[in-house]
Amino acid sequence: MGTDIDGVIESRSPDGHWRFTADLLDFQPPRDYVAWECLFGVRGAGDVERPLFAARGLPDGISDAVRESGIGDFQHDHTYATWAEVAAVEWDDPLAHGPAWNWAVRALPDGEELVRVTPGLRAAAADTFGGNLLLAPPEWPPGAEVRLDDVAHRPVTLTARMLAPPDEGCWAQVWSAMRDLAARYGDENVRLVVWFG
């Protein structure tokens, strides 16, 4: 059984009350465990040590929309972020102290591509470095590359830009909507509230 995301964008009125402004589902977020691990610390492969907006719970003064659909027996992992926090994200900062266990970078003629580490790549690492262990990228010697199907692979330290690019897909649309609202209400007066079920 999978996990789904839900949420809203709220804005704070001049009298200090938070109100529903947009439904997250209108942006059609896909079931993307990779992005969710990066952004909210939910699901994923365990390679993100420092998700951007994880485990905050519900914010104070939630809107009626959150109270009505975000609280119940099946909703969990509530968290939120203001536009000020999203705007301050350093998208190229590392999300962990070292290389990922489940990801590598594959060198292609026109650039690099982030790929999942497969059993075949682990076996190629064992062949490259000797021994019969299936070696994950953090176990490769520093600076080492592994060739698989005549393509070089190297360890990678993940960033938010790799896992949840801020300028692509539904998250680009969410951030754009929040930016536009913040221009009207102020950076601290616009927030995204999410939960999972």
Rank of each mutant, 00 (worst) to 15 (best):
T157V: 13
R154I: 03
D60R: 07
I62C: 09
A107D: 14
F129A: 09
F27N: 01
C170Q: 07
L95S: 11
V8E: 02
G16Y: 14
W103E: 03
D23K: 08
G2F: 09
V66N: 05
R43V: 06
E168Y: 08
V193E: 12
F74G: 14
G70L: 03
F20Q: 12
L114N: 04
L39T: 11
R161H: 07
D6M: 04
A125E: 03
E112G: 11
D167M: 00
D47R: 02
T82N: 11
A22L: 10
N132Y: 14
S176I: 00
W103A: 04
L58C: 06
D92L: 10
M162T: 14
E168L: 10
D60P: 08
R184F: 02
V34C: 01
R184N: 12
S13T: 15
A124Q: 08
L24V: 14
D32T: 04
P30Q: 07
L192W: 02
D167P: 07
R147C: 03
W140L: 01
L52G: 06
E145D: 06
Y80A: 09
E145T: 15
P109R: 03
P141S: 02
A84T: 15
W91N: 11
E139R: 02
G61I: 10
D180Q: 09
A160Q: 06
A96S: 15
L181F: 00
S13G: 08
A104G: 08
A172S: 13
A35W: 03
I62M: 04
D92R: 12
P51R: 02
M178V: 10
Q28G: 09
W18N: 15
D77P: 00
P94W: 08
A107P: 00
W140G: 03
A88F: 11
H17M: 09
S11H: 12
I62F: 00
L181V: 00
F20L: 09
P109T: 06
A164R: 01
R106N: 03
R147Y: 11
P94K: 06
A125H: 00
A177L: 06
F27K: 02
P137E: 01
G131M: 14
P141D: 03
E37A: 01
A45I: 10
F20D: 07
V193N: 01
E112Q: 13
F129T: 14
G186I: 12
A125L: 03
A123H: 10
G57K: 07
F20H: 15
G130M: 06
E145M: 09
F40V: 04
V117P: 01
V194D: 06
F129Y: 11
G7H: 02
P142S: 07
Y33Q: 11
Q28E: 14
G46Y: 02
D32P: 03
A144N: 01
D150V: 05
A54P: 13
L121F: 10
A177S: 13
D73H: 13
G120Q: 09
V34Y: 01
G57T: 15
W195P: 09
W195E: 10
R116K: 14
E68L: 08
W140C: 04
C170F: 15
L133S: 15
W83P: 10
D187S: 12
I71S: 01
W103I: 02
P142G: 07
M178F: 03
G16N: 13
R19D: 15
P166D: 06
P137V: 02
P119N: 12
A88W: 13
W36D: 09
L148H: 14
L134V: 12
L158F: 08
G120P: 05
F20S: 01
G98R: 04
